[in-house]
């Protein structure tokens, strides 16, 4: 299924080459866990700090679960960042 995959800040270079402005459309297997996608794109797990599906935070414990994603979802990931 197709999802929108976003990697920001220092992770941006890990996106596939068709990415535009930190955003790529990727194909993932049905039932893929978040960590399987994180690993596939070589995102160091310790840097997958802020992990959001459609803007909602997913805690570490839920990232190995299958079925978190559905067709058309947006998965966005940041390393530890802050501002203000």
């Amino acid at each position: 299924m197709q999802i929108t995959f976003k990697l920001y800040a220092t992770l941006g270079d890990l996106l596939p080459s068709n990415a535009v402005r930190n955003v790529a459309s990727i194909d993932v297997p049905e039932g893929a866990s978040l960590n399987s996608i994180i690993d596939k794109y070589h995102v160091p797990r310790e840097l997958a700090h802020l992990v959001l599906i459609n803007g909602v935070f997913v805690c570490d414990a839920d990232r190995d679960q299958s079925g978190m994603l559905k067709e058309g979802d947006v998965l966005a990931i940041w390393p530890p960042v802050a501002g203000g």
Partner: peptide, 8 residues
């Protein structure tokens, strides 16, 4: 910088 928050 702090601007990293814009997309977040």
């Amino acid at each position: 910088g702090t601007q990293v928050l814009m997309n977040v």
